[in-house]
Amino acid sequence: MALTRRQVENIANLARLEITEEEIPAFVENLSGIIDLVDQLNAAQTDHVEPMAHPLNMVQPLRDDRVTEIDERDVFQANASQLESGLYLVPKVIE
């Protein structure tokens, strides 16, 4: 199924990805090719088949809700580009 330019722009916006005007035609073509590939799944007979949510069909274990990590705030924040007084800086969101 061929995707339209408008669909591709909408997907990029949903994914919060800036793509340039020049890039759009290639994305339309490539993504349409990928969707054509995955459309082969329509041929499979999957009535009464349980969707596989875990590769070994195992369930997730639970653990006690206890704090296990040590506080390394400074180490983790060292990777942020813009920081002030231990706070992450972002553009103004409230007028």
């Binding site: 799944l41 499979a44 999957t46 088949v49 349980e50 969707p51 596989m52 949510a53 069909n57």
Partner: peptide
């Protein structure tokens, strides 16, 4: 969901 069902068939 379709892909997860086919995945079950492959497994």
């Amino acid at each position: 969901l379709k892909a997860q069902r086919v995945r079950q068939l492959i497994a």
